[in-house]
Computed example of a mutant assay.
Amino acid sequence: MFNTLISASQLQQAGNQHTVLLDCRFRLNDPDYGLAAYEAGHLPGAHYLHLDYHLSGTKNGSNGRHPLPDGQRLAVKLGALGITPDTQVVAYDDAGGMYAARAWWLLRWLGHEAVAVLDGGIQAWQQLGGELDNSTPERAATRFVMGVAQESVVTLDDIAANLCSPQFLIVDARAADRFAGENETLDPVGGHIPGAKNRFFMHNLDADGLFKSSAQLHDEWQALLDGQPVSEVVLSCGSGVTACHNKLALEHAGLPGARLYAGSWSEWCSDPTRPVATGS
């Protein structure tokens, strides 16, 4: 069972028996990109999941850009793809795991343990000679069984209360300039939640676009946390997507226990009365 990362060679060796592939390609500035890319060519047998339609819930103007989907509704969708408790699920994208990690986190949130992200994404698959397919795979619909949640969340109220009585450390996955309140193009307000630290999710990858070794990630994260227990860490970002990448890195590093603030900055800054910090 793979429950964090799977390499392209491991996926090729595993074959498709009891495996469901999820293509999660997406671009924030071009929401139609992922489906078009999928239709042009995807890993054989892969199904497409759209960040806005499948991996997020309904926005109401104050719950962030990518609120969590309804768990029961997502479970029905996953069941339609043939995912059972003994199915190995592999999610991939072409952005270093930026979007695939969201699917990985959601399946764990619903209690599915055998889910991994393809390290290096579709590029790693092709570099090993893996072929692409543009056909629509058949579906073997079943009932997705929700198990014991492997992931947990904190709420907006929890974040607000933490400002007055700190119980956990917030780690923000956005790029340093957006964290500092500069060059903000996605949200109406720039900055970060007061007291948060910054760990750009792309720092989890090496120069080849693969996740760094578990030992290197362990050392880097421990240095950032500076003695803070991982169980007292809450992961945030712009809208609860790249925070999942940091969660995946922590799990790969053998540092489990961090929670997700799903609403993240886009939810926090929707109310102008909430405090905002800027700078590094």
Rank of each mutant, 00 (worst) to 15 (best):
A141R: 06
N162Q: 01
N60C: 08
L74W: 08
E131N: 10
G227M: 12
I170C: 03
L118H: 09
V145E: 05
S9E: 13
A100E: 15
V76M: 11
A116C: 02
Q17C: 00
W221Y: 15
D94R: 13
T278D: 00
G257P: 00
R274F: 06
L51I: 05
K212V: 13
Q167N: 00
D219K: 15
H192A: 15
Q88R: 04
R174S: 04
T142R: 00
Q17A: 14
T273A: 15
W221N: 10
S236A: 07
N63D: 14
N60K: 14
V148W: 03
K212F: 14
Q12K: 05
A75Y: 06
S270H: 01
P137H: 01
E151I: 03
T4E: 12
A100T: 11
F168R: 03
R274P: 03
F144V: 03
F211S: 10
M202G: 07
T87Y: 01
A253C: 04
A14K: 01
F168G: 01
E39G: 03
Y33H: 09
A161H: 11
C164F: 08
R25H: 09
A223D: 15
L118E: 08
G82Q: 02
R73W: 14
D172P: 07
R143H: 06
E184A: 09
L132T: 09
L35W: 12
N3K: 08
F211I: 06
R174D: 06
Y53Q: 15
Q127R: 14
E182W: 12
G240T: 12
